[in-house]
Design a protein around this nucleic acid. Sequence first.
DNA 1: CTTATTATAATACGATTGTATTATTAAAAA
DNA 2: TTTTTAATAATACAATCGTATTATAATAAG
Lengths: 198, 198
Amino acid sequence: MPKIVDHEKRKEHIAEAVWRLVRREGIEGASVRRVAEEAGLTLGALRHYFDAQNDLLAYAMRLLIRRVGARIDGLALTGQARADMELIIAQLAPLDQERLAEAEVWLAFAGKAVSDPAIRALSQEAHEALYDGFKRMIAALSERGLARPGIDTELEARLLHALVDGLVVHYTTYAEHLDPAGLMRIVSSHLDGLFRAD
Amino acid sequence: MPKIVDHEKRKEHIAEAVWRLVRREGIEGASVRRVAEEAGLTLGALRHYFDAQNDLLAYAMRLLIRRVGARIDGLALTGQARADMELIIAQLAPLDQERLAEAEVWLAFAGKAVSDPAIRALSQEAHEALYDGFKRMIAALSERGLARPGIDTELEARLLHALVDGLVVHYTTYAEHLDPAGLMRIVSSHLDGLFRAD
DNA sequence: CTTATTATAATACGATTGTATTATTAAAAA
DNA sequence: TTTTTAATAATACAATCGTATTATAATAAG
């Protein structure tokens, strides 16, 4: 066998080149040739890692989902429900350059999901995982008696999920005009209504 | 001069061809040749209406914004704040096939806005108009004493705006698995918290 | 009726696209 | 060391891309 460098590491390096191109020139700018150039490979070398452009784009999106998921899983949670919820939500929001980059790439893929079945399936997969996460968090609140009595768990989960994703869209598209801190203030304000009044 | 048919009507007809292509094959599928074919024109005829592809795409997005705006402006409002708010929000949501089509095209353009400055500017323009609308609605509630006391108008406007757009994204990307009626139930549930408790 | 203008059509240009093929290099396995 | 296999490179192909040019048809204005 050849090189010592891990095969998967190379694929991730290529996927990151896809991200940069998608941010700068849109998804249609992520042609196989441009990606190869951006990653410092020749066309043939790129083809060795990805048989088709579809695979390349799907992998780039999957890696994005995995990266965000890993950051959430690696979080040092406090055990305090309210703080932990905000901590998790903050990982999804474009609060710094790294997360803004992620959000931009995500938004570009979300747009392509309209017409591309493979991307759409990935999009839905991530959607469901996120919804389940929110649902579990809110159910946990109710079970521990922390939530405002009488709330509908699934409805509140969908509401919070939509609010977070909507804020991500707004603060990504409108990043030049909005203060990132405002995003978490809005989230916090909504969570106020979710918790039992003291 | 030639044909009796209005010049602007033709451009709208072409823009609608762009919408259909964007839905079916994504924005990169809206090449000038495909658009011409979809609209029943030759390449030269299309070029007579739009000098460049940029103009074509920008016009298609502008028309989309105008169509939604016109539908809202043409609404027969009841004068009842709560009902009118839901009526307006319903015009933005993918509740039927026509509005689902609009939402899909909007989402595709939102994705392109990441890398295309012209589309991004249009996106921001529509964003601001919508935000202002929500802000005025909520300010009107407060002035009429209908809103829950002590609310922050701008924060509540951003929150509602993000919630609505987030729901549009979710119910568009996830249309096969979600009941459109659920969207308005979630909106309604949020509005409950905005109005003064009786 | 002639002229000017708008609309449509046909064709061409260079560039870029995704994919495929073939050959060469290098590292691991036998 | 020989063999096998992963990796890279170079080149080619047909298709499509955005844009430009030129010519023709049709309608309105003079």
